[in-house]
Design a protein around this nucleic acid. Structure first.
Length: 481
RNA sequence: CGGGGCGUAGCGCAGCCCGGUUAACGCGCCUGCUUUGGGAGCAGGAGAUCGCAGGUUCAAAUCCUGCCGCCCCGACCA
């Protein structure tokens, strides 16, 4: 940790990730295996993710609520596929109040069951529908292999749970929220995700159909960054969540659930970071700009700090999140490196020479060195120019990530090429007509899974790369986190 | 659960194989002075029941046994 640089991504991507998240003070390991402490800088990043999503949820008519973390064990057992999917990773509370409990409590791994329990009380008639509720909570899944943000035993997320009168409405809602996620990922996180449908094997335990936004990380692996499920009537049947129709009959409600977790933080890190550390998209960065003052003498210090304050105020007035590091403990060079490592999109340098010219220096994180540096920006334009720069950085990050994704996605027509593409840690786009078993076999042999059937399909038919039979859909295969 | 690694100061680590003064070094921290446009320098200082429990020995960070914990790599998963 005392060394200056970080391990280059090309040398060891996993080590780079582990080093960067800790040195940037996003996260630290908790005392219990697989748990993490999200430190203030990391939590601020998460808060901006929350804000971006929550705003979109509200805009699409959803309300926030809170359901208990403790779920009766019997609830989990009510939906067959759901039990099977989650049993191995449940955390059970067997003792409380100094006694053994009559029925163990599950620490929620997700809330479909307890929410249906409540919905079945609240929903009586078609007039009560739709129910559009979201909650921001922690969940626990006892994973074998954990990695900070990407997979931890406890994580934070939001889970939306809706109930509708018709199958069509539920399907519309599923896709609506998939699009909300894609919109957030692309426009706020600058991650060019591919929205698509999960294969039968990869879908959520208990869902009729699962949809995903898949993101490409800097090492070419895929990260499922958000999911939206059409639950059909699976849970409403298990929990007897019925409503009276306009015709006077009883029908089970049609449901959806959808979630984005702190995993998204890991996605942001791995989608944009470079060998100097993090690169955070301006819309999500805790500090969009950092001001680093430079001085030699005390007189200089006075005039420089005066200017720093003025610039800080003008950026704040423009609505930007800005931090001034006026500490005398480290020299400017140290600070430059530190804030680059922590991914601050824009650095503003202010020294005696700048004060003289009544101007400042801008340096953008996404273009290291002189190329991304501009001298002599008039101080009275700083706020406006900073906004423009940040918008441009946001745009450039998305463009760069999109180009990277496209360069690393290959159309594949035969198994041999498929193996090469997957071995090179790229994405393979293929025509697919295979079975579940064939999909499993490909995973065993190559490590690749179907990430999704992209919503954006070319249409028509072609022969499957694996079976040679006629296929009517295109799948994306890749190794995944 | 399998394989590997680690546990010694706040952090990173040396020492362990081959037992023997006061447990070394770097970063950080404290004091002072000089520095500050790309990770500063000098001087002084504080800080460690060597993961836990047994055992062997005149003597254990070091050897033996057991336990615990974490990390990394694989099989399950957002």
């Amino acid at each position: 940790m005392s060394d200056q640089g970080v391990i280059p991504r090309s040398e060891d991507y996993a080590a780079w990730y582990n080093e960067v998240i800790r040195r940037a003070q996003l996260v630290d390991y908790g005392p219990v295996k697989g748990t993490m402490v999200i430190r203030p800088y990391g939590f601020a990043l998460w808060e901006h993710i929350k804000e971006g999503l929550d705003r979109r949820f509200k805009e699409t008519g959803h309300e926030n609520a809170y359901f208990p973390m403790f779920i009766p064990y019997s609830f989990i057992q009510k939906e067959a596929e759901h039990v099977e999917g989650f049993s191995p990773e449940l955390a059970l509370v067997t003792h409380a109040g100094g006694k053994e409990l009559e029925e163990p409590l599950v620490v929620r791994p997700t809330s479909e069951t307890i929410i249906n329990h409540m919905y079945s009380k609240w929903i009586q008639s078609y007039r009560d529908l739709p129910v559009l509720i979201n909650q921001w909570v922690n969940v626990v899944r006892w994973e074998l292999r954990t990695r900070p943000f990407l997979r931890t035993s406890e994580f934070l997320w939001q889970e939306g749970h809706t109930a509708h009168a018709t199958q069509e409405e539920a399907q519309e809602e599923t896709i609506r929220m998939l699009n909300v996620y894609a919109d957030f990922a692309i426009n706020d996180a600058a991650i060019p995700v591919v929205p698509g449908r999960k294969s039968n094997i990869e879908k959520f335990a208990g869902a009729v159909a699962s949809y995903t936004i898949e993101a490409m990380m800097g090492d070419g692996k895929a990260l499922q960054s958000g999911t939206s499920h059409n639950l059909g009537q699976n849970f409403s049947k298990a929990f007897d969540t019925k409503f009276l129709t306009t015709e006077g009959g009883h029908e089970y409600v049609w449901q959806t659930s959808w979630g984005v977790s702190t995993r998204m933080v890991g996605g942001v890190i791995m989608a944009h970071g470079d060998d100097k550390g993090l690169i955070l998209p301006p819309r999500l960065a805790p500090h969009q700009a950092v001001i680093v003052p430079i001085w030699k003498s005390d007189e200089q210090k006075g005039s420089v700090l005066e200017m720093v304050e003025k610039i800080e105020r003008s950026l704040k007035d423009t609505g930007l999140r800005v931090k001034s590091d006026t500490s005398d403990q480290e020299n400017p060079g140290w600070k430059f490196n530190e804030y680059e490592m922590r991914g601050v999109p824009l650095r503003i340098e202010i020294g005696p020479k700048d004060v003289e010219k009544d101007a400042v220096v801008f340096a953008r994180r996404d273009r290291p060195g002189k190329e991304g540096k501009e001298f002599g920006i008039p101080s009275n334009e700083a706020g406006m120019r900073a906004s423009e720069w940040l918008e441009d950085i946001q745009k450039s990050l998305l463009e760069r990530a999109t180009q990277f994704r496209d360069e690393n996605t290959t159309d594949v027509e035969n198994v041999e090429t498929f193996r090469e593409v997957i071995a090179a840690s790229r994405w393979a786009r293929v025509w697919w007509s295979g079975t579940d078993d064939q999909e499993r076999k490909i995973k065993e042999e190559t490590g690749a899974t179907i990430r999704c059937f992209p919503i954006d399909q070319p249409g028509g038919k072609d022969s499957c790369f694996y079976t040679g039979e006629e296929a009517n859909k295109v799948a994306l295969f890749a190794k995944a986190y």
